[in-house]
Computed example of a mutant assay.
Amino acid sequence: MLIREEQVQDQEPVRAVHRRAFGAEHGDTIAELVDALRRDDPTAGFRKPSLRIPDRAFQVIKLSAYEPWMTGTFVYSNTFWRLDCVGARANKT
């Protein structure tokens, strides 16, 4: 499946999908988080935990508890590494 770049005209339909998928209570919150991902610069003080993670897949949202000292490399728990759940995989054909 080919994945294309998100276009400006896609943003409102994507928000509508989130509202339908997560309901009235949570849909707007999810849509706001997606909007925040569009705005935030994932390289602003953060490093991905693995080189296998493509730059476009590394996304950061600074939550309300964020402090300026919270920078550096993201650290995943050992479970993610043990189960090989970090980073992109080569296509198996």
Rank of each mutant, 00 (worst) to 15 (best):
T71K: 09
M70N: 07
E5Y: 03
P54H: 14
T73N: 03
F80E: 01
L63P: 07
G23P: 04
R82A: 01
D40T: 10
A16W: 00
E67V: 12
H18M: 13
G23F: 02
G27R: 06
D84I: 03
P68K: 05
T29Q: 11
R56H: 13
A36S: 12
L33E: 01
Y76V: 00
T73V: 05
E5T: 04
W69K: 07
D40I: 03
R56M: 12
V14Y: 05
I30F: 06
K92G: 05
L2G: 03
E12M: 07
H26S: 11
G27D: 08
F22M: 04
G27Y: 02
D35M: 12
W81Q: 04
T29G: 07
F46E: 07
V75P: 00
P13R: 01
K62N: 15
E25Q: 14
Q7A: 10
D41N: 11
D10G: 09
I61Q: 08
I3D: 03
G23C: 06
W81V: 06
A16M: 06
R52D: 15
P68E: 09
A44S: 14
E67F: 12
P49F: 00
R39E: 10
R56I: 04
D41I: 07
I30N: 02
D55L: 07
T43D: 14
A31E: 01
R38F: 03
R19V: 08
T43L: 13
E67S: 11
D41Y: 01
E67W: 01
V8E: 12
L51Q: 15
S64G: 09
L51T: 13
R20P: 08
D40Y: 14
T93M: 10
E32H: 09
T43C: 05
V14D: 05
A24K: 12
T73D: 13
L63S: 14
V86L: 08
G45I: 09
L2C: 02
